[in-house]
């Protein structure tokens, strides 16, 4: 039993990503999309915390949202996998429930 968490907020605007990180369980997945994609980038004050969670949780970013915001693949934290909307749908199907961290 696992959860797909979705985060659509910049971690610099709200605590959604941090709250998500502190409630996600081993084997869960986190998809960062919309402004949430900023949480997936290297060199931020949160990058270490996000990367550390990548050990127990699988991290994804919605490619279209990253592209729209000028975030090149090289700027993504290591271990973050880009997906398109088909990948988003597949993630939702593959996990038992989805939890949106609004």
């Amino acid at each position: 039993m696992s959860t797909l968490h979705t985060v659509n907020k910049s971690p610099f605007a709200t605590g959604s990503l941090q709250s998500c990180l502190s409630h996600a369980k081993d084997g869960d997945a986190i998809l960062m999309f919309e402004d949430g994609v900023y949480g997936a980038t290297k060199g931020t004050t949160l990058a270490d915390a996000v990367a550390a969670k990548g050990g127990s949780v699988t991290l994804y970013v919605l490619q279209g949202d990253a592209d729209a915001r000028g975030i090149a693949a090289a700027r993504l934290i290591e271990g973050v996998t880009p997906v398109d909307y088909v990948g988003f749908v597949r993630l939702a199907a593959d996990h038992d429930r989805t939890h949106a961290w609004l």
């Binding site: 999309f33 402004d35 279209g64």
Partner: peptide
């Protein structure tokens, strides 16, 4: 962006047999 994201998700789901 919520309604755009939802639209894209629904479209992708329907196009993939869901």
């Amino acid at each position: 962006q919520a309604s755009d994201s939802a639209y894209n998700f629904v479209k992708a789901a329907l196009e993939n047999g869901h």
